[in-house]
Design a protein around this nucleic acid. Structure first.
Length: 281
DNA sequence: TAGGCCATCTGGTCCT
DNA sequence: AGGACCAGATGGCCTA
């Protein structure tokens, strides 16, 4: 069920066994991996065929939990059913992981829609990380400002300031929590880039108006280079979720809170994600 | 066509 | 013993 919304037609993440099975059968012989079964448990005979297991090839089954002796005692069908059971568990585990990943995508300030390409797993994780960092910085900044305004009176009521400045337009959750990103995105949009790519840059980058040269950008913005996260070239219309409408086009938030450069936070280095960093083709 | 991303299978290791 | 977790391998689909 990790529906790859952008690839809906082609790859149902969740077990749609029939299609896979058919393709597997086509090439049947000599294969080892990806075939599958899919359905929570495919018929043993299918599994064996698809994997090209020759009869008696119990090594292929690799059931470490059984000694060779035990394996001899088990019938082939038993071994297969065990293998299927293990496979099924693993599949379920991965599906659960994908569900969790989808849940993470849902709470990300990122476009969700049929026309928007789904974030890859790695991109989701990187963006989530940066989003958390950004929110943390925003919170710290809000605390700081509140203490300034009220003479160090403490950290409560951080939302008051903002509400005062933005009675209407700034009421969105996103703005209240992610001002820095909003500006980064606005800047990026103004520059003709895809705002989405910059919305969750590490705070350091965000404060730098999402300069394409900014360090750390390579780690995130290049996750999905310019081909973008949109299937269709409808980039003009912001693919952002409602939470980020505020940045919209032309109204940079004037409040000081939104303009305070974010504290320096170590960005995802390209070292940690070399592949992504070099992915900016 | 190459590269990216993904699902699945598989075997190994660790934990309960 | 059995399950969870992990990583490698493999092949399919999609996009540039």
């Amino acid at each position: 069920m990790d529906s790859d919304t952008s690839r809906v037609s082609s790859r149902p993440s969740s077990p749609e066994g029939d299609d896979l099975f058919l393709s597997a059968v086509k090439k049947s012989a000599g294969f080892s991996g990806a075939v599958s079964s899919t359905q929570s448990d495919s018929p043993p005979e299918l599994s064996a065929d698809m994997r090209g297991l020759s009869s008696g090839d119990d090594n292929a089954l690799g059931l470490k939990m059984f000694s060779k002796k035990d394996r001899k005692l088990l019938s082939e069908t038993e071994l297969q059913s065990i293998r299927l059971k293990i496979n099924s568990r693993e599949r379920k585990r991965m599906h659960d992981l994908n569900i969790a990943m989808d849940g993470l995508r849902e709470v990300m300030p990122y476009a969700h829609g049929p026309s928007v390409r789904k974030l890859s797993k790695i991109a989701t994780l990187l963006l989530a990380r940066n989003y958390i960092l950004m929110l943390s910085n925003s919170l710290e900044e809000m605390k700081r400002l509140v203490s300034e305004i009220y003479g160090g009176g403490g950290g409560g009521g951080s939302g008051a300031h903002h509400a005062t400045f933005h009675p209407s337009t700034c009421g969105t959750l996103a703005h209240a929590t992610a001002p820095l990103a909003s500006h980064a995105a606005a800047a990026a949009a103004a520059a003709g880039s895809h705002p989405v790519h910059h919305a969750l840059l590490p705070p350091t980058v965000s404060s730098a108006a999402a300069s394409l040269q900014a360090p750390g950008l390579s780690a995130v913005a290049s996750v999905r280079p310019h081909h973008g996260l949109l299937k269709a070239p409808s980039v003009g219309a912001s693919p952002l979720t409602s939470g980020f409408q505020h940045w919209g086009a032309s109204m940079p938030c004037p409040c000081s809170m939104c303009q305070v450069p974010a504290p320096h936070v170590p960005a995802m280095s390209s070292v940690s994600m070399p592949r992504l960093a070099s992915d900016s083709k």
